[in-house]
């Protein structure tokens, strides 16, 4: 919970978090090592100096650390756990649904658990999706289209097989599809970050919401274009948001473009934990204003109302979260005890 200077409370849903194991013991090969080191480079490059972790902590943190970083030191009220397998790089998967489910079981009032599927897994994958939705009551999935699988270096959402999985997911009651594009996808000669396939499936699957993580970066321009045209395409702020510290001017431009093209109702906050932590991201986001010159040009203003939407209201709408009821549940589990103490001390 974030509380403004005037005492107004803002309910925060973190749209993008991970409980991963990137440790050397779990790495299968050099790619596993390079994968976590690349994440660590994002972390080191964009975090304030005092928020930087040693590599060892970054590779594998425990459940308590994550809980406290998000909900005690940080302002998150709830967080969406995204599952990512990367079984070609990691022996037991990078961030499996089982591992995430164990965390959610400890704090059911705090987490929304999302599964994952890979259309290249065929019928076995469809059966697994069915079983996962049933077992974990999934309403969302995270797709990583650049995942390596044997000789395959990725897939497209508008493939025939992807359609089968999206149809199955929709039938099973999955509503939200988080899409993350990475650098390798087939065929390699095309632009691997192109978002045309999201455009295609967003049109075909009107009953699903497509949340494009990192706002389609590095193709923000193409993303804005498709998200403007498709009512069911949303942008996740992870990776863009930490620029608020190192390059606030760039962040101002990016958030202005997003507000101008896709509007305040379709942008979702995400810390991308453990790459970044909610405390400093939200402190800076709440203090941030778009420079006047830029506002004049785009008409985009980051009002308190808009910030509330980005930080929680939009995700609550997508995931059917009744905020007041959820607050009671979290409060009953003692989740706000630390706040009461802090407010009393003020």
């Amino acid at each position: 919970m974030y509380r403004t200077a005037s005492g107004e409370e803002i309910f925060v849903i973190d749209g993008h978090t991970h409980f991963w194991d990137g440790s050397p013991a779990n790495q299968k090969n050099v790619h596993g090592k390079q994968f976590i080191e690349c994440f660590y480079a994002y972390h080191s490059n964009l975090s304030p100096a005092e928020e930087k972790w040693p590599l060892e902590k970054f590779e594998k943190y425990d459940a308590q650390t994550m809980h406290d970083d998000l909900f005690v030191h940080g302002y998150d009220d709830m967080a969406i756990l995204q599952s990512t397998y990367l079984t070609d790089f990691y022996k037991h998967g990078f961030n499996s649904v089982e591992r995430n489910a164990a965390l959610k079981n400890k704090h059911p009032e705090r987490f929304i658990l999302n599964g994952a599927f890979d259309p290249r897994d065929g019928n076995k994958g469809l059966e697994q999706l069915h079983a996962d939705v049933e077992k974990y009551k999934l309403t969302g999935v995270k797709l990583y289209t650049a995942e390596w699988r044997g000789d395959s270096k990725g897939y497209r959402l508008d493939d025939k097989d992807s359609y089968k999985f999206l149809e199955a997911a929709e039938k099973l009651g999955v509503k939200n599809v988080h899409v993350h594009k990475g650098p390798t996808i087939i065929p390699l000669n095309k632009d691997s970050f192109a978002v045309g396939d999201i455009d295609d499936v967003a049109t075909s699957f009107q009953g699903l919401n497509f949340i494009v993580e990192h706002c389609g970066l590095p193709r923000l321009d193409d993303f804005c274009w498709i998200a403007t045209q498709e009512t069911n395409v949303y942008g996740g702020l992870a990776v863009a948001l930490p620029f608020i510290h190192t390059r606030p001017a760039y962040f101002a431009h990016v958030i202005s473009e997003l507000l101008f093209w896709i509007g305040p109702d379709k942008i979702l906050y995400g810390s991308d934990y453990g790459i970044w932590t909610p405390k400093w991201l939200i402190d800076r986001f709440m203090a941030f204003e778009i420079p006047e010159e830029l506002s004049k040009e785009t008409g985009a203003v980051l009002t308190l109302e808009t910030k509330k939407k980005i930080l929680g209201l939009n995700a609550a709408r997508l995931y059917n979260i009744d905020i007041e009821a959820q607050k009671s549940r979290i409060g009953a589990a003692g989740g706000y005890d630390h706040l009461a103490a802090a407010y009393a001390a003020e």
């Binding site: 480079a41 590095p218 193709r219 321009d221 804005c224 190192t246 390059r247 431009h253 990016v254």
Partner: peptide, 24 residues
């Protein structure tokens, strides 16, 4: 105004790439 998206995107990527190269 529409082309500005392309510019913002490129500027952002450039800042990211320079930063990542510097860390690496």
């Amino acid at each position: 105004r529409a082309l500005r998206r392309v510019d913002v995107n490129a500027e952002f990527n450039s800042a990211l790439c320079r930063g990542l190269l510097h860390v690496r």
